[in-house]
Each structure stands twice: as structure tokens, then as C-alpha cells.
């Protein structure tokens, strides 16, 4: 891999979030620069950089079970522009839920984009419980013992330009047990309710837009 020719693209609007943290971990090994997807204006100017890169790594959050709209817009723009010549593409998606299946669509989306556009799909990495990290190092992840080596292996694949198998991330995270599922849902609900009340709102009141209709 030509180090100067790697594009590390952050598809989150949060520049200090988990997607960016994961890219920074990659950057330390591979070099290159992190590019933040602009949230406004035309995305045309990003296309030449994508076409010139030999390796593209996209890291983004999971919004409603797949990547955010702005990344979809970039993929549509890139696909209409064309001009790809076998660039290698890796994808990372992180979401709040402690499961792989809830976020996996993003990885499939990137693979289908690659297959349509003469881009060499090299594999993805799905990370659950990414919201709890909130940009903090991977060493703080609840499955750190398995996630850290798996993600570092993913970075090795990028550095070597080799394909990364889905089994790498699938085997590194286990869904929480029955008891932990219960504890998590109660704890997370307690935290969101506390936040809502702190701002003077009633979590049981009808939604603001429903009240607006009346």
C-alpha cells in the first residue's frame, strides 16, 4: 500500500465521535489524512480524491440501521462520476445497539456500491456499543478483550492491502446475556429519562409534533 495514497473518510457529522476515533487508530498505522464528509454543499470536490486514492477506508455511524444520508449522497455522486480503477475499499460502521445485525446493512451497502463501480471490496468491520464509547479509545469498549485485537487485525489487513473476513468482527462481540439485556435497557432508559427531565420535559407527554397538530 502506498501510504500517501490512502483516503480515510469520516462519514459522521461528529468530528470527535467514535467513527473518527476508529479512523485515527488506523491513521497511526497507515498514515494518510482523515477527511470529514462535508455536511453542506456539493460533494463533487471529494470525487477526484476518491479516484486518486489506491485505498479508501470509510468509517461512519449507524443511523436507522445503515449509514447516514450524506454518505449515501456521496456514493450516488461517486457512482455517477465513475472513473474508478480497482481502488480498494474497506468500511466500518458503528452503532449504539450491542448487536452486529442491526448495523450490518451499511457494510452490504458499501459492498454493493463497490461491485457496481469497479472498486475492489476488501471487507468491513461492524462495531456495536459504539455510542457508549463516544469517541473514547477502543480499550474502553465492554468487549475490549476481543474487540481490540480484532480491530487491530482489521488495521493490519488495510496496511497489507488484504481482504478482511466478516468473521473477524462477528466473533469479537457477543450479544449481552438475558440479564445484561435487562440491566442495559433499564440503565439506558434511566439515563435518557434523567436527561429529558433535566431539560424540564415530561417523557410521557405526547410528542411535540403531535401537540402541534392540535
Amino acid at each position: 500500500m502506498n501510504k500517501s495514497n490512502i483516503m480515510l473518510l469520516c462519514a459522521s457529522p461528529r468530528s470527535k465521535g467514535t467513527s473518527a476515533m476508529l479512523l485515527e487508530r488506523i491513521r497511526v498505522v497507515t498514515g494518510g489524512e482523515i477527511v470529514f464528509l462535508p455536511q453542506k454543499g456539493s460533494l463533487d470536490k471529494l470525487i477526484p480524491a476518491m479516484q486518486q486514492a489506491s485505498t479508501i477506508v470509510i468509517s461512519g455511524p449507524c443511523y436507522i440501521n445503515t449509514y447516514p444520508a450524506r454518505l449515501v449522497e456521496l456514493l450516488e455522486t461517486a457512482s455517477s462520476a465513475g472513473g474508478f480503477t480497482g481502488q480498494k475499499l474497506y468500511g466500518i460502521i458503528n452503532g449504539g445497539m450491542p448487536y452486529v445485525h442491526t448495523h450490518r446493512h451499511g457494510i452490504t451497502l458499501l459492498q454493493l456500491f463497490a461491485e457496481r463501480n469497479n472498486i475492489a471490496w476488501q471487507g468491513g468491520f461492524v462495531l456495536g456499543v459504539g455510542a457508549m464509547l463516544d469517541g473514547n479509545p477502543l480499550e474502553k469498549h465492554m468487549d475490549r478483550k476481543t474487540i481490540v485485537p480484532a480491530f487491530d487485525m482489521f488495521i493490519q489487513h488495510i496496511a497489507e492491502g488484504s481482504p478482511s473476513p466478516d468473521s473477524l468482527y462477528e466473533q469479537a462481540q457477543k450479544p449481552p446475556s438475558k440479564i445484561m439485556t435487562y440491566v442495559f435497557s433499564k440503565l439506558l432508559t434511566f439515563l435518557v429519562v434523567k436527561r429529558i427531565k433535566k431539560h424540564g420535559h415530561d417523557p410521557d407527554a405526547p410528542n411535540w409534533y403531535i401537540r402541534e397538530q392540535k
Binding site: Y63, I64, T66, A69, R70, V72, H105, L109, L110, L112
Partner: peptide, 14 residues
């Protein structure tokens, strides 16, 4: 679009 929805619809979903 690549097995998902277009960005116009995805913006609504998000």
C-alpha cells in the same frame, strides 16, 4: 440504491 434507499429518502429516515 446499492441495496438501500436514495439519499433523499435516507435524509427523512435519519
Amino acid at each position: 440504491v446499492f441495496g438501500g434507499v436514495s439519499h433523499h429518502i435516507k435524509k427523512i429516515m435519519d
